[in-house]
Design a protein around this nucleic acid. Sequence first.
RNA 1: GUGGCUGUAGCUCAGCUGGUUAGAGCACUGGUUUGUGGUACCAGAUGUCGUGGGUUCAAGUCCCAUCAGCCACCCCA
Length: 427
Amino acid sequence: MFLFSENDSVSSLRPVRGTSDALPEECRRFRHIADTAHRIAALYGYGEIATPIFEFASVFARTLGVQTDVVTKEMYVFTDRGGHELSLRPEGTAGVARAFISNAMTPPCKLFYRGPMFRYERPQRGRLRQFHQCGVEFLGVASPLADVETIALGRRILDALGLAGRLTMRLNSLGDAESRAAYRKALVDYLEKRRDELSTESRLRLQHNPLRILDSKDSGDRSVVADAPVLPDWLNDSSAAFFTEVCDGLKALGIDFIHDPFLVRGLDYYCHTAFEFVSDDLGTQNAVLAGGRYDGLIETLGGSRIPGIGWAAGIERLNALIETLPIVDDPVAVIAIGDHNQFLAMSIAESLRSAGVATEIGFSGNLKKRLARAHKIGAKAAVLIGDEEVNHGAATIRNLEDGEQSRVTFERVPDYFRSEFRKPKTG
RNA sequence: GUGGCUGUAGCUCAGCUGGUUAGAGCACUGGUUUGUGGUACCAGAUGUCGUGGGUUCAAGUCCCAUCAGCCACCCCA
């Protein structure tokens, strides 16, 4: 096997298709999003879990559904040296469910996760082959109240990210297995009669995944679907009651939603509640946080009958909606005037850092250059150390916003910044 | 996986129907005298014109392939 073929063009050093480097500013934003989610999830009792990035391929095939698009055409699958079929995880729920069983965790159990996911799709805006999600899984509670709380958590996180007014939530119920089977039959019966009006793709879907025809974007499909039987009419009594309670709970908590009877989920493990928060500003990949209930999942994987509900949020998609980030600590710039004062300047920089003040120090250039650089990195103040300062045993502190200068003895420089520049930032 | 559009300096782009040493703005570097930034003025550096083939006396400009990005489908977070 050749790891490096001669044909490899090293001249174009790019990341592979559908992946991208996250530069420092982007990492900061990603981190802010995931940390916000984590922090708020903790308020609801969630603890973080980290599962492997690759698993046995069967873990995903069994949970997501063998004929799902994600499994049949979008999974990265490979054989390792021991002959095992492994897969890069395309989503987080399956791995968490597997870990729940492997570790014999006891329900009820609230788990938060974050990390990279992989899907071999054709890249587009909002759709990468390596992307990042954070999500939650709430295992062991069958009550619709769990659905309400889980959705409320998602909403709160989106609010905290400043996205409150820019998203709408769509909600639907897929019902229990019995309801869904009954509906599926009714839908297929109806669609078969109007088969000729369907797009070629939808005719295929009629075989293995008829529910997907409901959210087709083809105009012909849409007009057929407009008169199709609708899922809510086919819910049995208990499923309907379940859905009503979810809706009532959301209303009681003041969470707005739109009941979209055509909302379906692409993964087989969902039942009852399905929801997604969508944005109008993202083009076609518009869902930023979506999930639902998956009561059969743990059992499918070989565990006991444990109900669950959860959602996942797309970090890159959320990032695309967030323009501004809370201001981080502005650094203080320490500037030596004259090379012989450099070490003194550096030791002052060190004491500032040990006092918790972000500090930058220049290594070259004259005073003018160093001040210009300090300004460029956004420093709000500069500490000047030159011969005059050394003679007085004090540093000059220049406020870079108004140009005002003052003298502070060397020993008190860190204290000065602790009191003056570490107040909480506003705006 | 399907269809369409795009690919020129770090960034955003201009380069008309193929014709001499490849352009602008922003950014960057240096300077406008010796210890004071943001503005202004002056000067400077920078490109295998995505990559590989082909047509031509001549290709950034035309053709083919390939890679990558964008848009829609599909799918999904």
